[in-house]
Deep mutational scan, measured.
Amino acid sequence: GPGLTDLFKTEKAAVKKMAKAIMADPSKADDVYQKWADKGYTLTQLSDFLKSKTRGKYDRVYNGYMTYR
C-alpha cells in the first residue's frame, strides 16, 4: 500500500487545494475548517501542510483555523 510519505504528499496536496479555495472564496472557510477539525488536524500539522516558498502566503488560512478551533 501507499507509504506514509505518499500519504503525507496526498494530504498536503488536498490541504493546499482547500486553502486556495478559501483564499479564492472566504465563504468556504468554515466548511473547510470543519473538515480539517473532523480529521483532527493540529495547527502544527496544518503549518507543515501549508509550507510555501512564498512567506506568509497561507497565513490567513492558518490564522482562520486557529480562531475556528
Results as ranks from 00 to 15, higher is better:
K57T: 06
I22H: 00
A19Q: 01
G3Q: 15
A13L: 08
T42F: 02
L43D: 05
L43T: 06
D25E: 06
K35G: 07
V61R: 00
T10S: 11
M66N: 07
K28V: 13
A29P: 01
R69L: 15
A24P: 01
F49K: 01
L50Q: 00
K12L: 05
S47Y: 13
D6Q: 08
F8M: 13
S27D: 08
M66A: 13
T5A: 11
K35A: 12
K17R: 13
Y41H: 02
F49N: 01
M23L: 14
D31R: 10
G56Q: 05
D30A: 13
S52C: 10
S52V: 08
R60G: 12
A14F: 09
S27T: 14
K12E: 07
P2A: 11
M23R: 03
G56I: 05
A19R: 01
T5D: 14
K16A: 04
S52Y: 04
K9D: 10
N63A: 12
R60Q: 13
Y33G: 00
K16G: 03
V32S: 03
P2T: 12
Y33H: 02
K35N: 11
P2L: 09
Q45R: 07
F8A: 10
A13E: 10
V32A: 06
T54I: 10
Y62F: 15
D30K: 12
T54D: 11
G64V: 02
Y65N: 00
M18F: 05
A24W: 05
P2F: 03
D31M: 09
Q45I: 09
F49E: 01
D30R: 10
A13R: 15
L4I: 13
D6C: 14
R55W: 12
N63T: 10
K53L: 04
K20I: 07
A24T: 08
D38L: 08
E11W: 04
K53Y: 06
Y68I: 02
K9H: 09
D38R: 08
A14K: 13
L43C: 10
D31S: 11
K53F: 07
A13Y: 07
Q34Y: 04
W36F: 03
R69Q: 15
N63D: 12
T67S: 13
A19C: 03
D38A: 12
K16D: 03
Q34T: 06
Y62N: 03
K12F: 03
L46T: 02
D25C: 12
N63Y: 13
G3H: 12
K16I: 15
I22K: 01
R69Y: 11
M23V: 06
A19S: 03
E11P: 03
L43G: 08
K39N: 08
K39H: 09
R60I: 15
K17S: 08
D38W: 06
A13F: 05
D6T: 05
M66T: 06
Y58M: 04
Y68V: 02
L7E: 14
A21S: 09
L7A: 14
W36L: 02
G40D: 04
T5M: 07
K20L: 08
K20G: 06
Y33P: 00
A14L: 13
D31F: 15
A37Q: 08
T54K: 11
K57A: 06
R55S: 11
L7K: 14
R60K: 13
V15Y: 01
R69F: 11
D30M: 11
K17Q: 10
W36K: 00
K9Y: 09
Q34C: 08
Y62S: 03
K28L: 13
A24S: 11
F8E: 11
Y58G: 01
S27W: 07
S52M: 05
Q45W: 03
Y33R: 00
T54V: 10
D38C: 12
Y41N: 00
T42V: 02
T5H: 12
R69K: 13
K57Q: 08
T10E: 12
Y62I: 15
D38P: 00
D48Q: 13
K16V: 13
F8W: 14
M18N: 05
R69H: 06
V61Q: 02
S47Q: 12
M18A: 13
T54Y: 08
K9E: 13
R69I: 15
K51L: 08
A24Y: 08
Y58R: 01
G1V: 12
Y33S: 01
T44S: 13
L4R: 10
K9Q: 11
R60E: 15
A24I: 10
A21G: 05
K53V: 06
V61H: 01
L43P: 12
A19V: 04
Y41T: 03
K17A: 13
T44L: 12
A24N: 14
K20C: 07
G64E: 07
S27K: 10
S27C: 13
K28S: 08
D38H: 08
W36Y: 01
D59C: 10
A13M: 10
P2Y: 02
P2D: 12
W36Q: 00
R60N: 12
A21F: 06
I22M: 05
V61G: 00
Y58P: 00
L7R: 12
D31N: 06
L46I: 11
L46N: 00
K16L: 12
F8L: 11
V15F: 03
L7C: 15
K17V: 08
M23D: 03
G40H: 05
Y41A: 00
K16Q: 11
D30Q: 11
Y41L: 10
T42D: 05
G3V: 13
K20P: 00
I22C: 05
D25L: 03
D59N: 06
F49Q: 01
D48W: 15
Y62R: 05
K53I: 04
Y68A: 03
Y33W: 03
T44D: 14
G40Y: 03
Y41D: 01
G3I: 14
A29M: 05
T44I: 10
Y65E: 01
L50H: 00
P26A: 06
D48G: 14
R60D: 15
V32Q: 03
Y65P: 00
V32H: 04
T42S: 11
K12C: 09
S27E: 08
F8N: 09
A13S: 08
S52L: 05
V32W: 02
Y41I: 12
Y62G: 02
S27P: 03
K51C: 14
M23I: 11
D6F: 03
K35P: 00
T42H: 03
I22W: 00
T54Q: 09
L50N: 00
D25W: 04
Y41P: 00
T67H: 14
D38V: 08
K51P: 04
G64I: 02
E11R: 05
Q34K: 13
S47I: 09
T44H: 13
P26S: 07
A29W: 02
S27F: 05
T44A: 15
F8T: 10
G56N: 09
S47K: 14
M66K: 13
K53G: 11
Y58I: 02
G64W: 03
V32L: 04
W36P: 00
M66Q: 14
P26Q: 06
A14I: 12
S47G: 09
F49T: 02
L50P: 00
K16T: 06
A24V: 11
A29L: 02
K9G: 08
D48E: 14
Q34G: 11
P26Y: 07
D6H: 07
Q34A: 12
T54H: 11
K12T: 08
M18E: 13
K20F: 06
A14N: 11
T10D: 13
M18H: 05
D31I: 10
K57D: 05
K39I: 11
T54S: 14
K17D: 05
S52K: 04
S52T: 10
I22Y: 01
D6L: 05
